[in-house]
């Protein structure tokens, strides 16, 4: 067998191993997430059914009627069965896309509430994360390359901006640009006198409300990414191969291209890993703007003790993050030859 075909075979084999391993991990984490999502909220002290009954049955004093109502709700939510049976029913329902009924907005299904909140969160988060990541990396690379005053002012600024929590940035932007200057609306995802529908006016109103939450996430993402890219680039610029290339008389521009390509690689994994934290932080920022996304939904669910809604929402977030991380892993495997090589170690 000649050398060429051996390499091809190993490469193909490597990809296959890499992807199947990643898919297996995706499956295992998903199962673990579902188990955590089911059992943790059910450990909470207190009786959620009693909460609903007392809210629904205001003014009913007949003890037998209350007892009957309680049992009816218990049956409706399946809480009268053993926990293990509940779990399998939950899994079965989950596979059909049924996340159960919300306690606080009974009888609205959880899946319905989440699917009306999810587009808002997605429309806010993904552009923000991508834009923040791109700008951050460019700034970080420039700071590492230019140095001097640019780096001296940018670095502390980025450290500070990156350290502001997402909700803090949201509050600052809100009070400056929405309340004091009145450039943007103060709260919500669209004008309060509108109902969501496909029209130009609604779209414009949604864009109007989108800017500030978007900026608050972008600024923080820029801070964090710029710092990471800066230190990666400095690390690479000081590496031996750069010095060697300089002594060889290779043009600076060519070296720089290699340096930043190498520095980018960890940043791609960084993106995958930070998406979890970014989404978490940005969810809290939604609350400040009363943005109709998952964050606000979770907060309202927590206030009303609505655990089907809480576990539904956290499950969706987990799935979202898992999928993004998985996709980035696959892309990473394709662009970095070292990853598949590592499968043979």
């Amino acid at each position: 067998m000649n050398e060429q075909s051996t390499i091809t075979r190993i490469t193909k084999n490597g990809y296959f191993k890499y992807f199947s391993k990643k898919i297996m991990w995706l499956g295992i984490t998903l199962i673990a997430a579902v188990i955590l999502n089911f059992f943790l909220p059910r450990l909470m002290p207190g009786d959620p059914i009693a909460g609903i009954v007392s809210r629904v049955a205001q003014g009913v004093y007949d003890q037998a009627a209350l007892q009957d109502m309680y049992e009816r709700y218990e049956r409706a939510f399946g809480l009268d069965r053993p926990v293990l049976e509940q779990f399998f029913i939950y899994i079965g329902n989950l596979l059909r896309g049924d996340l159960g009924l919300s306690f606080s907005r009974y009888p609205r299904p959880v899946a319905d509430i989440i699917s009306s909140a999810l587009p808002w969160t997605l429309a806010l988060q993904f552009p923000a994360i991508i834009v923040g990541w791109t700008i951050g990396n460019v700034l970080g690379a420039l700071a590492a390359y230019i140095r001097r005053a640019f780096d001296k002012t940018l670095m502390p600024l980025m450290l500070f901006v990156g350290g502001v929590p997402a909700f803090g940035m949201a509050v600052i932007l809100l009070s400056i640009f929405a309340i004091n200057l009145g450039w943007f609306p103060v709260a919500g995802g669209y004008a309060f006198d509108m109902i969501p529908h496909a029209s130009w006016a609604f779209f414009m109103s949604a864009i109007d409300h989108w800017w500030l939450p978007f900026l608050s996430i972008v600024l923080i993402a820029i801070g964090g990414q710029a710092l990471g890219m800066r230190s990666m680039s400095i690390y690479e610029l000081n590496a031996d191969y750069v010095k060697y290339s300089r002594y060889m008389g290779i043009k600076d521009r060519k070296i720089v291209r290699y340096v930043f390509r190498n520095a980018m690689l960890p940043q791609v994994t960084g993106l995958a890993l930070q998406i979890g934290t970014m989404i978490g932080g940005a969810i809290v920022a939604e609350i400040i703007f009363s943005y109709p996304g998952l964050g606000t939904t979770i907060m309202l669910a927590i206030r009303t003790g609505d655990y089907p809604l809480i576990s539904g929402a956290t499950l969706i977030i987990t799935i979202m993050v898992l999928l993004v991380v998985f996709i980035l892993d696959i892309i990473y495997g394709l662009i970095d030859p070292r990853v598949k090589a590592s499968q043979f170690e």
Binding site: R42, M44, T314, L322
Partner: peptide, 24 residues
């Protein structure tokens, strides 16, 4: 470790804090 790297920390925090309950 691998399991908890991909499950977002905030989700775990929300679920655990919620299950502990306000009073505790």
């Amino acid at each position: 470790t691998n399991l908890f790297t991909v499950i977002p920390g905030i989700v775990l925090l929300i679920l655990i804090s919620y299950s502990i309950g306000q009073e505790q």
